[in-house]
């Protein structure tokens, strides 16, 4: 039986923990709002670029000469998974659900006899995957999720690395794994194919009949400029979604933790009071029976 003093210490420590978790919840809440705004602000560019790409892809398809980023290498032997996680923990199942989905995908691909390579964005994902698949990790980027604001430059840096690997023939298909932000409560692990680029549906981008565009200088050159940029935009969008998801997950996790701490404090306090009462009763009995004996 713990002594009364031990129980008091215990209650105080749980109280301190509750303070921390509730502060983290508030911080995550305000960060979430900001992250959502950023994700919102980045959407028009991505949408416009997708529309432009759809037009170009349609134009080039007629000519049958597509650059490798669009057409692929013609094989799909080597798969590159770009795994985006957070740099920090304490956000519920956020990181582990990405890692779990990644593991499953790696297993599937291996069963099909494909080679898998990993690019880890975010420290947590790397730490969790390193033990099992350390030899598959070809690149690691960190220090992105912790920033106040994810810059486009960060996405460009990742895109650059992926492009270098692609040009060196290191992989055939690249897929990004990240959490899509549905709501603060719900994040969906999403696989998005980056390379070869899946041309967005032209009809979805514009309304019905597409105008015949003039291209200056010509389709190939514009496409050659646009595709790498599109890769960066895709990655940027995914990173922003991921950042928002992370804060959402953390907010929910910390909310639960705060509630649990509250319940625990109630339970401990009850036990503490009972114990105290029992002690008093015991002492009283001792005094009374002592007096009777005299």
């Amino acid at each position: 039986m713990p002594s009364l003093k031990d129980m008091r210490t215990r209650i105080n420590s749980v109280r301190a923990t509750r303070k921390i978790t509730s502060a983290m919840k508030l911080v995550a809440g305000s960060k979430l709002r900001r992250a959502q705004e950023h994700a919102e602000a980045a959407r028009p560019f991505a949408a416009k670029m997708a529309a432009m790409l759809a037009n170009l892809a349609a134009a080039v398809k007629d000519q049958g000469e597509a650059p490798p980023l669009l057409a692929g290498t013609g094989k799909d032997d080597v798969h590159l998974l770009v795994v985006a996680t957070a740099d920090r923990g304490l956000c519920g199942a956020f990181n582990s659900s990405i890692v779990r989905a990644t593991r499953r995908r790696i297993q599937e691909l291996k069963e099909q006899g494909k080679t898998v390579k990993l690019v880890c964005v975010g420290r947590k994902g790397r730490d969790m995957l390193r033990r099992e698949y350390g030899d598959l990790i070809v690149e690691f980027v960190d220090g992105i999720a912790g920033k106040r604001r994810i810059g486009f430059a960060d996405a460009e840096r990742i895109a650059q690395k992926i492009l270098q690997l692609y040009e060196a023939g290191e992989f055939d298909v690249a897929t990004m794994v990240f959490n899509r932000f549905k709501s603060a409560m719900v994040q969906i692990v999403t696989f998005k194919q980056l390379v070869p680029v899946e041309p967005p549906e032209a009809a979805a981008a514009g309304e019905g009949v597409q105008a015949i565009y003039e291209f200056e200088p010509d389709e190939e050159r514009i496409l050659a400029e646009l595709l790498p940029r599109n890769l960066a935009v895709q990655i940027y969008g995914a990173l922003l979604e991921n950042a928002a998801s992370e804060q959402g997950a953390r907010m929910v996790a910390m909310d639960n933790a705060t509630r649990n701490a509250g319940e625990m404090i109630d339970r401990l306090t009850l036990r503490y009071n009972r114990q105290r009462q029992a002690n008093i009763t015991k002492e009283l009995i001792e005094i009374v029976s002592g007096a009777e004996a005299v």
């Binding site: 950023h38 602000a41 028009p44 560019f45 810059g151 486009f152 996405a155 940027y236």
Partner: peptide, 9 residues
Amino acid sequence: FELVDPERV
């Protein structure tokens, strides 16, 4: 006329 960069409009 619309001018957008990756981070905002």
